[in-house]
Design a protein around this nucleic acid. Structure first.
Lengths: 187, 187
DNA sequence: GGTCGTGATGTCACAATCTGACATCAGCGA
DNA sequence: TCGCTGATGTCAGATTGTGACATCACGACC
């Protein structure tokens, strides 16, 4: 007999997403999330720095997808091509059976400035890491940061299109579109 | 004789920046800011939604600089050229005598994730508005968003260079450099 | 001059967020 | 059996943020 149900963090994450979707973020207290997950408020704050963080798990793994892609790019690939490799690596991770979950999460986040704020910070962190990986490849500033941030913009746009209602194309496809569009824009 | 000293918001902003720089953001309570400004805590929250917001005044005016630049661009200018016009309009606003103040503010913001988060949200808002201005010019998505966000990345990099220790070049110059770099990166 | 409305601020009560300190106790290895 | 460990609980408290109502100089209007 176990003393506690396992995976408290996972239960908290699921409970939070449900409650945020059901009644909105503001109307959901940490106490309510903890109660649905079967733990105390104090335990919530042991797993998550604050109420918003509960929607953003495994930042290390997420950022790693991008960085590993950049690192694995051909040594002579141009900066934006290396960034494109990072985006492909991340895009491949999101298969279509994850789309519904991602859509719900996106809906919740977009409806709440505080969550959008947190997401921007997370994506900025990914951008910073990709820029660092580019510098390791010998790319100088400000080129490294510009390539990385433009890449993040592409991923953001592709992801938004991927979770848009009625979308049937895959994230990888949409990301390629975005990369082409970025090159066209910059002439 | 006036009932209250004028410009309570300005006093609160100055008091907050001073205290954040002196003892850090976490160690500065709203009560302390209000006391230094000579008002009550409640008055602080009448002027600013939350403690972080006190460092981000006049978002309307700031975003307006970018948007007006985009709107004023030649009708046949390419998307990125219109964005460049927006960046120039904003860059011209920051003259060198504002550099010290901007540097202090940047130092405080960069040292605190919560403030960086808020700044990202503000800049994302500027990007959204530039993208909307581009769409008014007939630029389709995702091109409008990509051009706007890449432009924001350029401004961010230029601004960081502008407030870097020992920097003597002007923001407008650094912005032009960034634009050239962006075009080079995207080939 | 007198009256009255307005707007900025103060006062008070309170919910919610977040943290530190300490207690509990099943499971595990020595 | 004993003692340690790690996840969780309990409790007290500071801080943030909001709603409701009070105060009162100032200016408009009669």
């Amino acid at each position: 007999m176990v003393r506690w149900e396992p995976d408290a963090a996972g239960r908290l994450r699921r409970a939070a997403l449900e409650l945020f979707a059901e009644r909105g973020v503001e109307a959901t207290t940490v106490a309510a999330i903890a109660e649905r997950a079967g733990v105390t408020e104090r335990t919530f704050f042991r797993y998550f720095r604050d109420k918003r963080e509960v929607l953003f798990g495994d930042q290390e793994g997420f950022a790693g997808l991008f960085v590993e892609g950049v690192r694995a790019a051909a040594p002579d690939a141009a900066p934006l091509e290396a960034v494109a490799a990072g985006l492909r690596s991340a895009s491949d991770f999101f298969t279509d059976d994850a789309r519904d979950g991602a859509r719900l999460r996106s809906t919740v986040i977009d409806a709440h400035p505080g969550l959008r704020e947190r997401e921007l910070l997370k994506m900025a962190d990914v951008g910073d890491r990709m820029a660092a990986a580019l510098r390791e490849r010998g790319v100088a500033e400000p080129g490294a940061s510009l390539a990385a941030k433009s890449g993040i913009a592409v991923f953001h746009a592709a992801f938004a299109a991927w979770v848009a209602p009625g979308q049937t194309r895959g994230l990888a496809d949409l990301t390629e579109d975005g990369l082409r569009e970025l090159r066209a824009i910059a002439r």
